[in-house]
Design a protein around this nucleic acid. Sequence first.
DNA 1: CAGAATCCGGCTTGATACTG
DNA 2: CAGTATCAAGCCGGATTCTG
Lengths: 124, 124
Amino acid sequence: MSQYEHTCMIRGDGGRTIRAVLDRICDKWTLLIVVTLDQGRLRFSDLHRRIPGISQRMLTLSLKNLERDGLVSRTAYAEVPPRVEYALTPMGQSLIPPALALAGWATEHIAEIEASRAAYAERM
Amino acid sequence: MSQYEHTCMIRGDGGRTIRAVLDRICDKWTLLIVVTLDQGRLRFSDLHRRIPGISQRMLTLSLKNLERDGLVSRTAYAEVPPRVEYALTPMGQSLIPPALALAGWATEHIAEIEASRAAYAERM
DNA sequence: CAGAATCCGGCTTGATACTG
DNA sequence: CAGTATCAAGCCGGATTCTG
């Protein structure tokens, strides 16, 4: 069967648990924001700069969802101009190792995937 | 800085690599299909049964994309009624550990996330 | 059994403009 | 600076029907 015995536990509910979390962190930006915040406490504009391509709107929404889910903490300072800092909560930090595992796999296999894609397109 | 030194490598391109792979495996069903196929070689109808909630259409499309990307192999037998089996390629199998890491995190923290969500909704 | 084809509603996302 | 508000587009995904 599986080469990883605890798989059955994860599939025990027919994938509902993994689907529930996938629905939360597997949108377009969330996981990338979490990995970026592993660099430490960052301001809104810092995040915006470090994540190329994300819109203000999406950064706002994603951060709000992450805060609601308890993965990110938001700290607003009563200053002018306003300053808001975001940081990973302990639970958010616990997501870093699996997230990096996936990211590591990504960097290792992206070329092979692209090659497979190209070969597939060639055959058409 | 980061507690995981190789993070900088992953973020080196501004997250473009991780985004490229996220775009591929982080749709609604792909990762779940991969994890399910870790059980071994499965027929189309088997997959359909083992993944509750997925439509025929989405299973077909996801499998086609996985095959194109070189993560899944498809074997059709010339029989009536037709039989088609799907299995992970070596690259597909290499995705299992990171995928399970994420799935494991999911099962461990889903309750805490739900609690945080509930508390958040309460405050509103 | 294992799909392919079609239709279509809705959610996600992006662009833009505005504000405390 | 750190958002909010509004709008429109596009893609995702579900339901259904049909086929070799």
